[in-house]
Design a protein around this nucleic acid. Structure first.
Lengths: 196, 196
DNA sequence: GTCTATATGAAGATAGAC
DNA sequence: GTCTATCTTCATATAGAC
């Protein structure tokens, strides 16, 4: 049930760098999902990892840095897709590329997405976090297709929260991942390609 | 900036029942919006009201009951609209009625909606709260129009989170309320009325 | 990298006076 | 309805040994 954390790809060393850090982030991600950020204590994280609070503090000087690291690990999954979408000249294809990956990520995590997306602590922390801001601007630029009109902005805002929110919605709790993915992709595509 | 709390309508007494309770709920709503549920302590609420923690405990035996009361007050605003929508035989008109009111409520509160909608504490609390479940079922029944197919479920889940999420989205932070309202209404209507 | 031990503060909650 | 005072538990955080 723990999310995987990327290791140093291509290294011959199986546990090369930050194995302890990675364990903390993985445990934190699970707990944040279930209890929210403020509802998760360092004690809980330490217990989940199987170490003491002091050991956790040795990896991350504050709880806030754990939160930032956790969100960054998840967002990093979108990095390559964002690169590919920006390199794609046909912006309908670019949009489709991005949509597919965002939906995959959201469906794969369901409840986690909503918490990390809307928790007031996360929102405040990431608002002060420059790399995150740039990341989001790139994402929205593809979503709006360089159209800064109110209609385009509202449309992009709706679709980006609709995907994250819908995956954890009680109405779709009974749907299997494949069905949810394909419906989300179809509906989001229609919505974004619809009339102005 | 404080939200109003309904008093006993039609009473000749200006502060008839639960004035103290109402002050607590109004202060809690503001704080929950800014800090989240877990990020809001009883001390903060007491300070905002201008009394001690013990006085707050006299009104609500636990913090959880403050949360439930706060959410109930907000949801109660939708009650009359839900009645009207259910009484409307033309289900396109019923949908429009509901949409207009939900958007009004969401735009009027912006940041608050997202917190109350997605906070894990609220989600857990309301999941055990029967009146809330019934309320939501009525709402979703109008949204899906008695269609329980995966397509209809995902569509309803998307639109219900899209409205709540979009109002607090950075992309629309610069839009005035009127513009946001009309765009939301137009886009949500198109989305719900679109092809299956 | 992990531990024990501890400091300091704030959390939720209660008892009982006014 | 509100107060003071107090309890217990848990939080974040630090110091220093292994």
């Amino acid at each position: 049930m723990h999310a995987e954390v990327p290791s140093t790809a291509g290294s011959s060393n199986p546990v090369p760098y930050g194995a302890a850090k990675a364990r903390v982030v993985a445990a934190a991600l699970d707990l944040f999902t279930e209890q929210g950020i403020s509802g998760t204590s360092l004690q809980m994280i330490a217990d989940a990892v199987g170490v003491t609070k002091a050991a956790v503090y040795h990896q991350f000087p504050t709880k806030e840095e754990i939160v930032v690291a956790t969100v960054e690990v998840e967002l990093a999954r979108l990095g390559p897709t964002l690169d590919a979408a920006e390199a794609e000249p046909d912006h309908v294809l670019a949009l489709d590329l991005l949509l597919t990956q965002v939906i995959d990520l959201a469906v794969g995590h369901r409840r986690m997405v909503v918490t990390l997306q809307h928790d007031p602590v996360v929102v405040r922390l990431l608002a002060e976090h420059a790399p995150f801001q740039q990341f989001m601007q790139r994402l929205f630029r593809i979503l709006t297709g360089d159209d800064a009109s109110p209609a385009a902005r509202v449309r992009a805002a709706m679709v980006s929260t609709a995907i994250g929110g819908a995956v954890s919605h009680p109405l779709v709790a009974g749907l299997d991942d494949d069905t949810l993915r394909s419906q989300l992709h179809r509906l989001a595509g229609t919505f974004l390609g619809g009339p102005d």
